[in-house]
Amino acid sequence: MKKQVTLWQDYFKGIWEINPAFKQILGTCPTLAVTATVENGIAMALATTFVLTFSSFIISLMRKLIPSQVRIASYIVVIATFVTIVDLVMKAQFPELSKSLGPFIPLIVVNCIILGRAEAFASKNGPLRSVLDALGNGTGFLIALVALSAIRELFGSRSVLGLQILPDTFEPMIVMILPAGAFITYGLLLGFSNTLAERKKRIAQEELVRKYKPVQKAGSEEIISQEA
């Protein structure tokens, strides 16, 4: 096994490098649907992280027991169990929150982030790493949802987490709370994060080229002198 990755990296990569919402573009349905207010966004991200962590842990423990032909079905059953737990707990403890999130708590079952991490990571790695990976992805998802919902709530209802931030003279942009605003805000954020990543890559590449150019020149001159 060529496992050079530290545990910290397993956790940290989910936050930016493979951020579920911005890099993998997974779990778009809840990302768009529940981000009208920051409160809903945080609740959704925490619920998803809970399901993700526990199902990754269980799947990773059972990865050698599950025959690969029926693995997807088995993963779904494990995930559905935890989603049911979350759904019932939310209904009992936070009835209002559960109502405002509507069918999106049960729909965590088909959230591709969870199945994606189960398939790509938990089925190949040990429990500790799987839990860290799940927590990292959950944190990344939380950051993405908070960013998106903060922008939408700020411009849509002048407040963040219910606290008014913009003055009354600011006319709220109703469109930001509506579905259209979700699509546009997510699209813009995704576009900017792609542009940023692209720029970083270009700069790294240019640096690499600059580093190697003198060596190449020296080499070619050598050849010329040899030929002469």
Partner: peptide
């Protein structure tokens, strides 16, 4: 990204 904006 552009698909999402168009969808909006």
């Amino acid at each position: 990204p552009i698909t999402l904006i168009t969808a909006g």
